[in-house]
Every structure is written in structure tokens, then in C-alpha cells.
Design a protein around this nucleic acid. Sequence first.
DNA 1: CTAACTTTGTTAAAAAAATAACAATCTTTA
DNA 2: TAAAGATTGTTATTTTTTTAACAAAGTTAG
Lengths: 222, 222
Amino acid sequence: MTHNDAPGSKIPMVVIKRLPVYQRYLSELQKKEVERISSGELAAKIGITASQLRHDLSCFGNFGQQGYGYKVDDLLFEVNKILGLDHNIYMVLIGAGNLGRAVLSYPNFLSRGFIFKAAFDQKQPPVNLNIEGILVQPVRELESYLKEQLIDIGVITTPAANAQEIADILVAGGVRGIWNFAPISLKTPENVVVEHVHISESLLVLSYQLCHKGFGRLPVSY
Amino acid sequence: MTHNDAPGSKIPMVVIKRLPVYQRYLSELQKKEVERISSGELAAKIGITASQLRHDLSCFGNFGQQGYGYKVDDLLFEVNKILGLDHNIYMVLIGAGNLGRAVLSYPNFLSRGFIFKAAFDQKQPPVNLNIEGILVQPVRELESYLKEQLIDIGVITTPAANAQEIADILVAGGVRGIWNFAPISLKTPENVVVEHVHISESLLVLSYQLCHKGFGRLPVSY
DNA sequence: CTAACTTTGTTAAAAAAATAACAATCTTTA
DNA sequence: TAAAGATTGTTATTTTTTTAACAAAGTTAG
């Protein structure tokens, strides 16, 4: 047992970014009621090497059994715990346009412990406008709302022009993380974690690949 | 001049994934009418090393001038060309729900040459339903539409249950790339490029970081 | 025009990540 | 219960990626 959970120890970001992938495949297996899986089988499904999978997991602990593999339920439980999905995470969303509604109605949030407590929009929303069971309130209520409720993550789906202002309110209101869909870099204190979703980046990568096909093999090494 | 544009040469995927970032910052500079920039300045803005920026660019050519730096216009032009943004890319979207509408109305697509030619939805759309100037047609028209129009990329924003069926129609209709937002792995021939957008992955990374804050420093190395 | 700067592209070195190898040990089968 | 087989966790090796260093070449200022 040499896994890295000591204070100050560093887990590489490349490893952390693969955890959600493991979580997804394990959830699928659990849904199919598969009981056990070996690193070789799971890695093949994901499209990586068994070595990498075992190496990644060993950053966090020893979850397998020699000669047997991993119990799907147990490994998923552990991965969920690592990702912080073993307890509820409360969120608010600001910007109830198309994108905001899409995020609010994204499936599999609830089942993973992400709970939208409220949604806000700039325009005075129609009285009792409900999206996916969430009441949409005018954004001027956000500040006072955050004083009363403990919210972990603020989700910004407003136009870029309003995003910084919203971020400031969220930070002042005590959120610890911001999931930002607005195409603008937010300025926040160091203790607030921001994840910026750049949807179009993958479209440009797709464009690149289309553009550079046909030279024998793809000029891409993964 | 030793850059890599020979047939069969391989550009690392990590490099390709940074190109959209360069594109974005360069676009911003151009909008601000900045004429020239050095690798040091640009790298600082982006948050990488100058060395890495120059190294990445050198995969594709020599775009700078010693003692001067890069002309913003020229470098953006070159990066756009590398990404295939120097000509129009025609797209159709299937699934005109909240997510589909959000994608259709995403800003900066047109300016980069991405053009939605049509949108389709499972349900019989209201007569002449227009979203962002795009007529939404019933999805049974998709197959015949693709026979008449040359479409590069199909964008799937349907529920997971319909995604594979749509992908099959797109492939049969001759699209070369699929931008898939449905949470399901698509089976496609090798010559069709698929980019799968896993929106929630970055939320899980955010959750991880929130969960592991406070041990002195973040247990994350970037 | 010259000399002092600046900045690139490239090569070399260092660091990080992925893969391979294998002892340890658990499972399965007979 | 014992032997054969399977699979992990870990260490070693290889590969990839990042960073550093620097000669070459252009710029700027006087």
C-alpha cells in the first residue's frame, strides 16, 4: 500500500481527468448488473491499456483482488468517493436560456448527487416558471438566496457580458466552485475552483481531423 | 524549416488540442487590434511556457520573425488554416431540444466558417419553426436532404436512444464527421471522425477539486 | 551603419506519462 | 487440499511531453 492520499501529495491532472471516464464505464457495468471485471476487460472497453488503468487506480488505493479482478460495485463506490460523489453537491444555475435549460435537464445529474437548488435569469421570469421542477427566479434574488442557502457550485450559462458580474456575486455568496459555460475567462480568488467549458474546442479538433485526413494515415498520434 | 507536413507524419494529439486555445487568444488579440505579439507575451496570457508555444507552432511551420515576434493577423491566419477554418464547413443538426437550440445559437460559429445548413427534429416541428434562421424539418427528411446537399459534419443533440440511428443515416448520407452530444458511444466506419462531447466530465473534475481542497495545497499537478 | 537588444526555431536535457514486466497472492478446479 | 491459472499492485523501462538553452537572424536606437 503506497497510495497517495497524504496531505500535499500530488495526483497528476491527466489521471484525474480519466476518473470520470472510469466512473461512466463502471456505472454502465453496474446498470448491466455485471458483478466483476478485470483491469484488462475494463481497459479494453475504454480503449486504454490495463497497465494504465491499474496504475491510475493505484494512486488512490488498492481496490482489486489478485486472481479475481475488481468488484464493479466496490470499485464504482471508491471512484465515486474519490470524485466526491458520495455526498450531495448543491448547485444553482444562472442564465435560463437554451443552454441553461439544457444543463438543468441533463440526465444523470441527480443520480450522481448533483442537485440544482435554484435557477435565476436576468429577465423577470414569468411567474412560477418551472424548468425540470426548478423555479426560475429573477437574478436580483441571487445574492440574498446565497445568504440563506449553502451552495457548493454556481453554474453560469449567461451571455459572456454578464458572466463576471454573476461570478462576483457567487464568490461573495460563498460558493466554492464555478462551472462556467460563458466564453470568457473569469477572475476569481484562488480558493474558488473554476471549470471553464469550451464546447467549441472539440469542434475545432474535429475540423482539424477532417482537414488532415487522407495522407495515408491520419497525421495524429493519440 | 523542419516542420511536419509530410504525408504520414504525426502531430501529437496534445498539440492539436492546444490549437483551439491559440486560435481563441489570437482572435481576441485581433479584435483588440493588437498587431504583434511575442511567444513570451502570448504564452503568459494563455498560461503556458513560451517554449511550448514555439515548439507547438514549429510542428506546422515558421510563422514568426526573430527579434520581432509574430504578426497577430498572420499567425491567426495560419492557425485557422491548420484547423481547417480557412473555408466553410457545412453542418446539420439533429435534435432541436434545449441543447440543440443552444448549439444552433452558439455565437462565433459563423465567423469561423461553421455554417448550419439545416436542423431536424423527431417530432413533427410546427410549420416553419425557425431557430436562429434555420428551418427545423422533420427528421424523416434527413436522408433525402443529405442526398441533395454536401454536408461535412452532423451534430447530434438527440437523446441517447436515437443517436445511433441518426449516426447511421448521417454516415450513409456521406458526412465525414460527427459532433456527438448524446451520452452514448457511436459505432461508425473508420473514415468518419467522431468527437464526443462529455459535458459532465468537467463537472466531475470540479467536484474532485472541491473535495480535495484544504490539504495544504491542492493535490493536483497540472 | 553599427552595436546592443530581442526573439525566433531548433536542439538538448529534464520531467512526466505510458507501457511492460513480474513477484505476490488470490481463485478455481479437480 | 494441492496444483494450475489468473490478476493485481508495484517497480523498471520506454516513450512522450515539457522545459531549458542557445545559435542565428532580425530589430531598434543612436
